[in-house]
């Protein structure tokens, strides 16, 4: 009996390993296809965090940007996905030791690894998104997410009918809290009476947790949720879509990219765009042009590094969008200061 029991457990284990593999299987399969498409021998590599290039979030944005660079003939590109945080350093090293001109680390989780690798290879060029690594050969790109979040906060504050607005974050880190702070400030600015609930799923790769968090919020009467949770946010969209089908009036505000393209206008109110792609493209181009320099760059509203999706006009009325534009101008002008930490 015991044997049967443990054998079946083992079978389940084996099966789940296989299924997990199939489930993850990337549709655009491999890192950068044909090399030497352009005349350039510049090679740009990219290491994702555990999310992978199909996270419908910043890893994907970054990879799409690199593919664009490749099809323009500027460089050949390739990525490596990390299975755990122990993989970051060897993966970065794989590119560095292979003589890549630039190696990206996507996401603040790679900050320590980038720092280590940069220190051990002073001649290599590296770049990181969402975190600051202080080394002469590393370009750090960060964003003023609070500013962009403020704008979608304005939209949410204006458009909520229940006067209850939610926020679902991934890991509770200073970065994600910047989203929350800006969003909350935006709501306050236009609708001081609106109630605000924040929840952190604790992970960027757990759609099930995201779905559960969204369900809880919608049950409590929230009608608009802004998520900053990577793939976990997919669950938020799923929950909203199923409620929409049954007639409930709920919305999601997307993050990083225009997520209405992915999840449809029916549930996506608007999206807070973070131009990871622009940043990746820009810095990669600097390497191609030979103008790359280490240092930190923070992209905000004024650099068009963050903003609200162009397709927002579908669901958001013109007067609200006008208000958004006004606030945008004020923030750029410095008249409105957006907090970057949660009080």
């Amino acid at each position: 009996m015991k044997k049967v029991y443990s054998l079946s457990l083992i079978m389940v284990l084996a099966l789940s390993v296989i299924l997990a593999a199939c489930g993850n299987k990337s549709d655009n399969a491999s890192g950068g296809a044909s090399e030497g498409k352009g005349s350039s021998d510049v090679k740009v590599g990219m290491v994702t965090d555990v999310g992978g290039v199909n996270d419908k979030s910043f890893n994907q944005s970054a990879w799409e940007a690199l593919e664009k660079v490749q099809s323009a003939g500027g460089a050949s590109v390739k990525y490596l996905q990390s299975k755990s945080d122990q993989d970051y350093i060897p993966n970065l090293n794989q590119f560095v030791k292979d003589g890549y001109s630039l190696t990206w680390g996507i996401g603040f989780n790679l900050a320590d690894a980038i720092k280590t690798v940069a220190g051990q290879n002073p001649d290599a060029k590296l770049a990181i998104i969402d975190s600051v690594v202080d080394a002469p050969n590393v370009k750090s790109v960060t964003f003023s997410e609070n500013e962009g979040s403020f704008l979608v906060g304005v939209v949410a504050g204006k458009m909520t009918k229940m006067n209850k607005i939610g926020f679902v974050g991934g890991e509770k880190s200073p970065l994600i809290q910047r989203f929350e702070a800006g969003f909350q400030a935006g709501i306050k600015a236009v609708n001081p009476k609106a109630e605000f609930i924040a929840n952190y799923a604790g992970a960027f790769d757990k759609p099930d947790v995201g779905k559960a968090a969204a369900a809880t919020m919608y049950n409590e009467g929230v009608d608009i949720i802004f998520h900053a949770a990577g793939a976990t946010g997919t669950g938020v969209f799923n929950e909203a879509a199923s409620r929409k089908k049954s007639g409930q009036q709920v919305w999601v505000i997307g993050v990083d990219k225009d997520q209405s393209l992915e999840f449809g206008d029916e549930v996506t109110l608007t999206s807070m765009i973070k131009r990871v792609d622009t940043a990746v493209e820009k810095v990669s181009q600097e390497v191609i042009d030979g103008t790359f320099k280490g240092g930190t760059e923070t992209l905000g509203l004024k650099d068009d590094g963050v903003g609200i999706a162009d397709t927002s006009s579908k669901n958001v009325p013109a007067d609200v969008l006008k208000l958004v534009d006004e606030y945008k101008a004020k923030i750029i002008a410095g008249e409105v200061k957006v907090p970057d930490t949660v009080k």
Binding site: C22, N24, S26, K78, K83
Partner: peptide, 12 residues
Amino acid sequence: SFSADVPPEIVR
């Protein structure tokens, strides 16, 4: 996946 462009999931 780096040298042969095979998705690493194959290993799983």
